[in-house]
Design a protein around this nucleic acid. Structure first.
Lengths: 207, 207, 207, 207
DNA sequence: AGTTAATCGAGACGGTACGTCTTGTCTTGAC
DNA sequence: GTCAAGACAAGACGTACCGTCTCGATTAACT
């Protein structure tokens, strides 16, 4: 009956190699020189691509950078899987803090920084990076609620904020170091108000 | 013996009018077009000052912007004074959130954003804006400790982080609105772990 | 018996409609915006033809323009036919001057201009436009020689140059207007040295 | 008394070295690669000057080229000085033809070519190059009139056109070579109609 | 009062990257 | 094999700011 109407549009199709090579070049440059010194000209040169092609597919260097970051980073969002939601989230927070102390941290900082004067970029960052992360965290927390580890009346959004905001705070403001002890303290404190007694405590988690 | 060391250097002294007019122009432009579209050329033109003069006194446009922001904003860091430290801090948090919902919020966002790819600027921001604010907060909290309202074993830095990090988080990430109810929730939760029973609770605070 | 030997090559035959529609589009654009603002992209779009097709049949935009000009202009090279060669040539000069005061003049100017930095184009212009014109003129002059109106020892090339060079000169340099009176003066003067007495003079020619 | 008020405008004065070095670079490139392949980028690079500076003082590459040509060529407009105006002009025509067979010819061709699609450039060329040349020629011819060598009722503009148009014609159209014999023939013919008998004839001129 | 020296405006300058444009080639599927 | 559509590399275009510089004019304290 119904016929597959997947009509390819006419004309030479977009080369996928271009996208790949551009994002690769952008990522390399991003790690080399950082976002501030990243230039469209540089990306084009490194990727062996013309500027016109760059501008055909990305509206600005911020968009390329964001895309490059997403392509390289998002696939790696994974959560530990144990029988304790609190332990899982805490372990994940420690992993995140560790990543944020390295190159990824610099990239995240610069991309969020970029977003402060470019609303579109911020939206991309939120929907492409932040929302998925928070979603995964909430999933784990819901497991904890189901298992009776976490109280049923918590506001998940606020809980997630309480857990991750201090990490972003120290990442972005750099007024104090982003140490594991700090992360554990924050986790312990945030969970203390929403967990039921006689259960696993995050403090027991070890890396 | 010792001679009056206040030696004025020879030559025409620096005109203070220049500093004033530059910061005024920078602030106006900042509110008009935002930091991203702010240019040294624009500031110079608006202030009726030459670019050379600008560069004589400020090393970069970030420095001018920061200076302009400081001059306009820092004087206004004030804390309510009641007999409850918890109430004072909570009230201050609400005031801050309110300010951050307006033009000040945009400026703070852009300056922090700028700092993500310019360490020097971030340092200036921290030492000129963040540290004083946190200092004032810690002062109030120490009053609370002294009065027995707050436990004596709290880590003030972490407490301050717990209180303000979620505000900065929502300011910078914009994934959720920065509402008063959220601020009150955060304050209530953070204080619940560090206050002694039978005392004022922040929830009772009203603006 | 004999079989049609005109072997059609395999594949889709060249559409003659393409040539027509391209030259039409090129000519229209040429008259609209002039050669300087003519683009291959524009021609392709206006003709509803792909750029690849354009480049398959013409090596450059100059070639298209030249071809378009030829197709539109060359067929119109006609000479008046009276019993006086001098009168015929003079009348033709006046017609030419008239054409050169209009759109044709602009096109001729731009094509010759183009030829100044593109030898191939100039050759095409000469062999496709100039040589045929001069040939026609020389033909008429030879009639005049045969009829005794013009001396037999004239160098036709130089005579043609003398007649037409001043017209091109004013067309291309634009230092002075290309008026009929000027053309008549030039014709009269050039012919005065090569005609035999008691014959028709070009001054008597009227349009 | 009245004091010379030649007030220097404020600001850093225009460096004359820039003009010199730019025109030098432009001229070199012009002779190397011709006008068609001349680029602003190339001039800037060769002159060690920024593109912004180029565009501050010249609106287009045509303007730079024209200026460069003028600076290099115009000073050399000289006329031989004998007691015969006809001989002087004829000698000058031969000199011009000689120059036009070399690099100068290519430049003149390209500049006039450029002028065919850029009216402003053509005006500059006419007023900066053509008019002065023609003026010098007319001056000499007026001497000839005063001395009785040339008839008093000639139209100088038309005479100059008759003399030089054929040279430009062969320079620009390239349909026939620009030989000395041709120039002499043209001169002889043009002067034959405006000189009085018993005087010097241009044919006697030798270089 | 004259000297001295830093400050200020104006704006030229070399430089870098921008985002756009056009050229000429190439790729794909339809005809 | 020809065609339309359109992606692509190359590279010049003209613009916008950057940060530095060179001027002459101004301005106050120190002779």
């Amino acid at each position: 009956m119904a016929q597959a109407p997947v009509k390819r549009p006419p004309g030479r199709p977009r080369s996928d190699a271009v996208r790949t090579v551009v994002l690769k070049a952008a990522n390399d440059l991003l790690e080399e020189v950082g976002f501030a010194k990243l230039t469209m000209e540089g990306i084009a040169a490194k990727a062996g691509v013309s500027k016109a092609t760059l501008y055909r597919w990305w509206p600005s260097k911020g968009a390329v950078a964001m895309d490059a970051f997403m392509a390289a980073t998002v696939p790696r969002i994974t959560f530990p899987q144990t029988d304790s939601a609190v332990a899982d989230v805490t372990a994940q927070m420690l992993l995140l803090a560790q990543a944020y102390r390295g190159v990824t941290g610099r990239l995240v900082r610069e991309l969020i920084g970029l977003g402060q004067s470019d609303p579109e970029m911020l939206k991309t960052f939120i929907s492409g990076y932040l929302v998925p992360r928070r979603g995964a965290t909430k999933e784990v927390l819901r497991r904890g609620i189901a298992s009776g580890e976490i109280r049923t009346d918590v506001d998940l959004e606020i809980l997630v904020d309480s857990l991750y905001a201090p990490i972003f705070h120290r990442l972005l403001l750099q007024h104090l170091p982003l140490e594991d002890a700090f992360v554990l303290h924050i986790a312990s404190q945030a969970f203390s108000t929403v967990t039921l007694s006689g259960k696993n405590t995050p403090v027991s988690v070890r890396l």
